[in-house]
Design a protein around this nucleic acid. Structure first.
Lengths: 183, 183
DNA sequence: GGTTGCTATGCAACTCGTTGCATAGCAGGA
DNA sequence: TCCTGCTATGCAACGAGTTGCATAGCAACC
């Protein structure tokens, strides 16, 4: 019930097309609110009929027209109202945690396979942390951060960085535990 | 696509009724895989028709019969097969992070309201951390942890504890940032 | 004596989210 | 030259998840 609001925030930070939004969701925003391009396109059209956003057709040669969306006053009011509603607890779907507990009901070969999976998973998180740190260096560390928007974006990014570091430490703990079971 | 598997793991650890499962999902398992009782009941019935679990009717006086579910051999094989499939990246729906970035487009009164929300959110996470720590003392710290299942449950719990500690630190950072905007 | 709350399950209707596929032209590499 | 991949949007069908409501008896509280 909040993809709309995530889109509103993203469009306020920077107007863009559905495609561009989908790419942003893959990168920064998507780490705390995932969405596929299908969802984004569908929700954008609904938001347009509800008058929360307006689209401006941008003709391009050789490729389909782009629809650049911006937030309307009505959309901004909707966002403000939502901001003041109680915060819902975060929803986590952590498949790996289920698999780790499930590993108790598999044999040594299964656990060996899980270790390989965890190592791959860990490599993905190393890559994500690196991307975050690069983004932080690029966007925040050199500037004086005068802007409230920038400070808020930075504190959310710091949350992502802290999360990734925590996950990496935990995955080391997991790998030690899994490897320790066979001895 | 993995609520089934979370239920299988939970039932292997301890057979139980839909209601009992729902309560477990509210507590321990639910922190990394949320599910309402509606979902659990529906999925349990499907799992029963698929032959992954069997139900044993337990008559009780004064209240509706209980259906105690256990995992069948076929269910266990399904779980093992799933355990060896690639791990999907975790899905996070972190509404608070969206609201923090959105706060850039609200006024001082809105940000003051958000600070109150963050404080409440923080109190919830303090309570969760306390519950985890109490559970750890109760189930893991005194025992020698001979059992592989216990060691795996413990490492997942340590992940939960690390997560909650990280969140609390980050929320302090968030509160400092939000309070610093008005100065 | 009334209200609240717990155990225990379930239906119906709805919204959210995913998967597979389709179009379509251009750019770059083997 | 063919194949892959990128920009850009969308339909259709399905599966996952939520919300509201209903039943029903017992226990505890005020």
């Amino acid at each position: 019930m909040a993809l709309e609001h995530a889109i509103l925030v993203s469009l306020l930070e920077q107007p863009g097309s559905g495609y561009e939004l989908a790419r942003r969701f893959e990168r920064s925003i998507g780490r705390f609110w995932t969405a596929t391009h299908q969802q984004i396109y569908r929700v954008l059209r609904r938001m347009e009929t509800d008058g929360w956003v307006t689209a401006e057709e941008i003709g391009q040669d050789g490729r389909p027209d782009k629809r650049r969306y911006s937030v309307t006053t009505a959309g901004r009011e909707t966002l403000t109202r939502w901001l003041r509603e109680p915060v819902q607890p975060e929803t986590v779907r952590h498949e790996l945690a289920v698999k780790i507990r499930g590993a108790a009901y598999d044999d040594d070969a299964g656990r060996a396979a899980l270790i390989v999976q965890v190592e791959r998973y860990r490599a993905d998180h190393v890559a994500t942390l690196d991307r975050y740190l690069a983004g932080e260096r690029r966007d925040f560390l050199d500037a004086a951060e005068i802007d409230a928007g920038q400070r808020l974006q930075h504190v959310v990014l710091r949350g992502g960085i802290a999360y990734e570091r925590m996950v990496l430490d935990w995955l080391d703990d997991v790998l030690d535990t899994l490897r320790g079971l066979d001895r």
